[in-house]
């Protein structure tokens, strides 16, 4: 077990350094061709060039927009329907087969409809991202509401909060919050995967830029955007964990 507070950081940095070292050495000693796998030392220059010609900032701005809107739409719908179906067995039963039909359809399969409905527009990408987010958040919220301790719900009843809405607000929602947040956090990562997929068919963003670069075998640029996604995700997740810690400060 790490004994001091710096230990987790040192271990993490050490692991990352080892990873980069292996990655650097493999193409250098000819283990793989550097077209197939660019060296990490090539990346900063590729990154600087992408930033200089303005493509990086534009792609990131657009994708971030798709990402946040998709997260917002899918997350809101997922939380709302998840809670409703978690609270009402009738509602859940009436959704059961709709869910079974729609759930297994991958986000990419929606692309033709997204284009028909929205055109090759930002909203099409948002739609595809939102679908992926929706299912994760829907099931997490439904499970979290279903799992609320009955004894706590009884406390609401005992103190006169008998209506469904009063119960939801006073007991069920706060009790389900940890589970809902776990779903949202999973969706945070899933949504970046969907961003790349959603931008494959022509909506501008870093997914599109990655496709262009790979068709030109500019693998260093592809890696620049892979790392960009990792950095953006890392920042989002860190922020999320911070907010989550605030919201769940009551826990030991």
């Amino acid at each position: 077990m790490p004994r001091n507070r710096a230990a987790p950081f040192i271990l993490g940095a050490g692991g990352l350094a080892a990873f980069l070292a292996v990655w650097q050495v493999a193409p250098s000693v000819g283990l793989v061709s550097s077209t197939l796998l660019p060296k990490p030392s090539d990346i900063p220059a590729a990154f600087a060039a992408e930033v200089r010609n303005g493509l990086w900032l534009e792609a990131v701005g657009l994708s971030l927009g798709h990402y946040l809107l998709g997260l917002l739409c899918g997350g809101t719908a997922g939380v709302a329907l998840g809670i409703a179906s978690g609270m009402s067995v009738r509602f859940e039963l009436s959704l059961a087969w709709i869910v079974r039909v729609l759930r297994p359809i991958p986000g990419l399969a929606w692309v033709p409809f997204a284009i028909l409905w929205f055109g090759v527009e930002q909203s099409a990408a948002v739609f595809i991202i939102a679908i992926g987010v929706f299912w994760i958040v829907f099931f997490a919220s439904q499970g979290a509401i279903r799992g609320v301790d009955r004894e706590l719900i009884e406390v609401a009843d005992a103190f006169g909060f008998t209506g469904a809405f009063a119960k939801l607000r006073k007991v069920m929602l706060p009790a389900a919050l940890p589970g809902i947040l776990v779903g949202l956090r999973t969706a945070l990562g899933q949504a970046w995967m969907s961003v790349v997929a959603a931008e494959l068919f022509g909506v501008a963003g870093l997914g599109q830029r990655m496709t262009q670069a790979s068709s030109l075998l500019a693998t260093d640029i592809v890696v620049v955007y892979m790392l960009t996604i990792a950095a953006l995700y890392g920042a989002m997740d860190t922020l999320f964990v911070f907010v989550q810690g605030r919201l769940l400060a009551y826990r030991p």
């Binding site: 009884e154 406390v155 706060p174 009790a175 919050l177 769940l248 009551y250």
Partner: peptide
């Protein structure tokens, strides 16, 4: 409120 109940396990709301 006419009646109030104290449960066996306190059942405080942890949040």
């Amino acid at each position: 409120r006419t009646a109030a109940l104290v449960f066996q396990d306190a059942r405080l709301l942890p949040w």
